[in-house]
Each structure stands twice: as structure tokens, then as C-alpha cells.
Amino acid sequence: MGTARKFNKILHSELDVHAAWVPVTNTFGLGDYGVFSDGVFVKMGNIAEFGVTFATAAGAPARLRFRSDGVRVTKFVAGAEVPNIPQVDLEASIRIEFSTSDSFYVDAPVLTVASIEDVARVGAALRKAEGWRRKYKVVFSTYTGQGCTVISSRKANSTFELSATADVLRLLELGQANGGITLSGESAAGLEVIGATGVVGLRLFKLRLFTGGTDILRTDEPDDEIEYETAGDPEDDL
């Protein structure tokens, strides 16, 4: 299984969302539509192309912190191991050890959620839009991580170290770092994002085959295996 699929499974298990691939360094937005390719959502355009508009709403912020089994994290200040990074002007590091290949360290201190509020109305408008295809999926929620750090291992027994002054690493853990951090051991990394802000997860809907109502995708499996969650609309009983 590739890195993208594994990251997708992590986000699905932790947040019940699909991965925005590549995490953080992408251009996904509300109303984007597309299809799945090799288990990852691929953007084709935005529903604005079909003259469809929507209202938006913001959700409460959350946090995503994930460590694959066998990942060990150790923190040091001035060469001494510490339980937490203090906000002091001393050299410090965060050591991340991966015992197996294709493992992940994910830390998004602040996740903000933006959503399309009127999903049922948007679905009804798309059903009438010329050129719209039922296989298209639509982004109706984006999960944006602030100050995200995402590292994955290509090889077993890989070690990475984030180094900076302690006050900078403390800001990294709060999602507020803006540079000054170095990463060693990156030659064995399958994915590396350090203290960056961007979209990490998506929620998607598609139109039903017979009624044209809206169904929320619950997994990234092929269409005949996807589980759906009804997004209540007037056509539910048809």
C-alpha cells in the first residue's frame, strides 16, 4: 500500500475524512469536484463552473495527533531528555524513531473546519446542470491544519530529528512556528511537512443514482463498496 493510501486510512480512522493529497501543499477548496484515482481524491474543477453557488459555515477547531505503532518520540533541551519542551532560548530537539517502514508521525495542533451549509440545495442544482456526471464527488468540508508536521518513514529503524531553539520547537507544538527548524535524517522520509499550514482532510458527497439526492462518502473504496451517510434532503423518501 502506498504512502497516500496509508495517510488516507489514518485520516479516515481518526477524523472520518478523506486525505487531501498531498497534505497541506495542495489547493483544495469548498466546491471542488473530481474522482478517486488509486485511492486518492483528484480535483477536476469547481462547481462554480456549472453556475452553482453555496453558503459556508465554520466548525469548532480540533487537534489531530497520530503516531503509528512503534513510533517513539523523545524531546531534548541542552542535551538532556525532558518530558516537555519549555519556552527558553536553549538548543533543543525532537527525535522521532520509526521501528517499521511506512509509519507516520502526524501533529496538527489546530484543525479548522469550513463546510458548505446547503448541501441538499447544491445537489439539486448539480442534478440539473448540463454536463454534470454522477461519478463526480464534491468537497463539502475542508479540514485545514495550522502549523502541521507530517513525517513518514520509507525504511524500518529510521530516525529523524527536528532541531531548533526550545522556544521555536515549543511554538511548533502549538502550531505557531514560522521557520528556524531543521530536519535531519530526511533521506529516508517518504513524506515531510514541517510546521506548515494547509488543507489535510476533505469530506465529500455525490449524487444518488436514482433520485439524484446527496450522499456523503464515508470511505475511499470503489463506488460499489462505498458506504454512505444520508445528508437529509427532500428526495430521501423517493
Rank of each mutant, 00 (worst) to 15 (best):
G175Q: 01
Y105W: 07
A80I: 08
Q87V: 00
S103G: 12
F160W: 06
P234R: 15
D220H: 14
G39S: 11
D223Y: 06
S93H: 04
K6N: 12
G195L: 05
T53Y: 01
A114I: 00
S99Y: 02
V200K: 02
I10L: 15
Y143G: 01
P222W: 14
R67M: 03
A62P: 02
G79H: 10
L11K: 12
M44C: 01
I151P: 09
V82F: 08
K135R: 11
P109K: 06
H12F: 05
N84E: 14
A19M: 14
D167M: 09
Q87N: 03
T211N: 07
S152T: 10
F160S: 07
V139P: 00
A57S: 14
T53M: 05
G145E: 05
L11V: 12
A166D: 07
R95W: 04
F160I: 03
L90R: 15
A92N: 08
M44Q: 07
A125I: 02
G39Q: 10
A20L: 11
P23E: 07
P23F: 11
E227H: 08
A129T: 03
E97F: 09
V77F: 13
A120N: 06
A78G: 13
D215W: 03
Y136R: 03
A58S: 14
N8R: 15
D89P: 07
K9I: 05
I194C: 04
N178L: 06
T56K: 01
V168G: 04
A62E: 13
I96F: 02
